[in-house]
Design a protein around this nucleic acid. Sequence first.
DNA 1: CTAATAGTGTCTATTAGACAGTATGTT
DNA 2: AACATACTGTCTAATAGACACTATTAG
Lengths: 271, 271
Amino acid sequence: MYNSEEEFLKNYDSSKFEKLSLTTDILIISIANEKVDNYRKTSKKNMSILLVKRDDYPFKDKWCLPGGFLDVHEDLEDAPNRILKRETNLDNIYLEQLYTFGDVHRDPRMRIVSTAYMALIDKNRLNTKLMENASWFNVSVKEENGIVTIILDNGKDILKTRIKKTLKDKTTDRYKFEIVENNDLAFDHALVILSGIERLKNKIMYTDIVFNMMPKEFTLGELQQVYEVILNKKLLDPAFRRIIANKVEATDDYKTGEGHRPSRLFRYKKD
Amino acid sequence: MYNSEEEFLKNYDSSKFEKLSLTTDILIISIANEKVDNYRKTSKKNMSILLVKRDDYPFKDKWCLPGGFLDVHEDLEDAPNRILKRETNLDNIYLEQLYTFGDVHRDPRMRIVSTAYMALIDKNRLNTKLMENASWFNVSVKEENGIVTIILDNGKDILKTRIKKTLKDKTTDRYKFEIVENNDLAFDHALVILSGIERLKNKIMYTDIVFNMMPKEFTLGELQQVYEVILNKKLLDPAFRRIIANKVEATDDYKTGEGHRPSRLFRYKKD
DNA sequence: CTAATAGTGTCTATTAGACAGTATGTT
DNA sequence: AACATACTGTCTAATAGACACTATTAG
């Protein structure tokens, strides 16, 4: 054969294995505020994700996650960052690899493996209009008897998916997801959405990732609401404040004009 | 353009995007027993991983993780299972996707993206000889000042790698790994090894994955040793027994002939 | 004044950490 | 008998859950 690595590489024929395409899909998660008519009540918070309406086959007119093909000359992580820049015009977005999906028939066109990422953003940072065909959808998740129902709502369209969730194995915390009902989401993107939501939920209590979705300054009530939206349950005030006490620092300002006692503004403590 | 999905798919030209190769690397982790000369002492346990010596370029004569190319006609998960079967002759091995590595220059031959998996096995299940060139290496990990030193030892070769570990971001628990020193491991496999070890370490306290590495019956002392090897620290007996109390059930048998009081045998409680 | 949220004190229950003690088979 | 490990009791510290109370503004 060859006598050195250089010689080997010079003669290497990369075509001997059949190649395939790799794409990236990105679940961009943020928090939406919904005004409530009662002037005293605080605005309701929702988890919201960015979807794009497909204007071409396959899955024409269905909604899907922003994504695209990995260029052969870019690092794997560069692809989601490039797409995030395109969709939001922002740099330095929190990005985390979620999972790589690679079933043979997940794309009807051809064999495509896709690495899914999750990005968290603070909507206040957005400084340009969304791309055409893109839209924020409020997310609501319900779980009953091992079936997760996800409802996505952008004010015009309401998308509904149901996913069966079963433990892969008693020894682990990993689930097998199977789409039971899905009409409006393209590809297997419902699975990516659920993976991301669960990842966020799991991590919120032992990391500081929420702060990637918060504005510079916020009240503890607002922060608690975000935790509650993500965890999908109410928290007790004193317990919550104990948990986040050493993650935040008080500013000298208050949020006033809310029809009730003003709330102190805090910021994320970085040191 | 096209008027239906069928028509679109019939005319789809999959060659318009440059394709690439995808491989799988598998970190197979198990527990090794090391006999101690003092007849009273219990045998020492080690974490051990399976490596393969490369007999071809690139990285000829270096050690690497078992792996291989993903076939265009198999699901992504099938590739690691196929390789596990080849290397161990076992089915139903605990397998978990770790991470997808895709830097442009991670393979000197060409652009290759690799999805890494972690497999956990109980060595007692092994019923055939290892493949030629394959060998179990005992693992020892030390962390000092953000530098992780991994030493792998199979009784003949001693491989040493040092990896710099820095938090990607204060808000998260994800680290950036950079290889600082590495002579004997091929590709970026040192990173895969560290990712897997850390994943196992993180999960051991809140899942039951250890039991994938345990024989059918074991003493609590043995089980505790495995926890200690993975966590890299001593545990207090009463605390340990509290934690695993409801995961195991006692058998009627004892392990005798050990030069000290016999220990009851337990098994994993599956219900 | 009142509705609505802000913010705190404190009791209790649960869990983790630590240490010391007793038990028992092998040589 | 002595060694090494098996196994348990109990005290203490730390943390989480629960409830009740006080504080403060816009209207």
